[in-house]
């Protein structure tokens, strides 16, 4: 059985994910939160803007910080989901190859409504190209700022690198404990994956596109 995105999306959207009396959403072994996308965008782009206004030479550092935040988020969120009971019950029975871990995770992400992600290319252990339409980061950026000359989907971009690192570098298929130690080991490896946002709607492209490759081939 190959990954059936329709079944995954229908099941996850039917889970009734909503905040409990603690204001948290316990699901996939995680405590999820439901943020307004505009709230996240305001903080993310505000950090970038504040740093760059004060010190334009810090642009790369600001982007690196936001990307690092995305790596940490992906490690715990995607890693937690792929280690969860829900994953075992819903996605695991559909998995036939390591690449299906990537496709299965993409289906769960689409169910969360973070945009419409589509795997355009996946070379095992080597390269991932993902197209993203209706990205809340790029559309949110354009609601508040003029068209930019650089990509702006920092969380999605770092998330894609995080996914490839979990599957091919950290071997999430063996269900390792998602500790800080493992995070450092995986992401500081010179052969770990990094992503670049080749196309971004915030700079006028029709959609966003991420290319994930190893830092050192």
């Amino acid at each position: 059985m190959a990954i059936d995105e329709r079944v995954i999306v229908e099941t996850v959207t039917g889970m009734g994910l909503a905040g409990n009396e603690e204001g948290l959403i316990p699901a996939f072994g995680l405590y999820l939160t439901n943020h307004y996308a505009d709230f996240y965008n305001r903080i993310s782009f505000g950090v970038l803007g504040a740093l760059v206004r004060e010190n334009p030479e810090l642009t790369e550092d600001a982007v690196a910080l936001l990307t690092e935040a995305a790596h940490v988020c992906a490690f715990h969120t995607f890693g937690g989901i792929m280690s969860s009971v829900e994953w075992d019950a819903l996605v695991q029975p559909m998995i036939e190859s390591r690449e299906d871990w990537v496709r299965g995770m993409m289906a769960v992400v689409n169910a969360f409504g973070w945009g419409r992600f589509r795997v355009a290319e996946l070379l095992p252990d080597e390269r991932l190209v993902v197209e993203l339409r209706d990205s809340y980061e790029s559309s949110g950026y354009l609601e508040s700022y003029p068209r930019t000359d650089g990509p702006r989907c920092f969380l999605a971009n770092g998330g894609m690198a995080g996914l490839m690192n979990l599957v091919y570098q950290g071997d999430i298929t063996r269900r390792p404990a998602l500790t800080e130690e493992l995070y450092r080991e995986v992401f500081s490896d010179p052969r770990s994956f990094r992503s670049r946002e080749r196309l971004c709607a915030a700079k006028g492209d029709s959609h966003c596109e991420f290319v994930v490759e190893r830092m050192q081939g």
């Binding site: 889970m15 009396e21 405590y31 969860s84 009971v85 829900e86 075992d88 019950a89 819903l90 029975p93």
Partner: peptide
């Protein structure tokens, strides 16, 4: 759900069970 179920005990815990996989997660409040 078709392949798993969740017990919600407000103020106490949530238990998510994948019965066929023989696995459950208890998340206390």
């Amino acid at each position: 759900r078709p392949t798993f179920y969740v017990i919600e005990a407000p103020g106490a815990f949530q238990l998510t069970v994948a019965p066929r996989a023989g696995r459950a997660i208890l998340m206390p409040r």
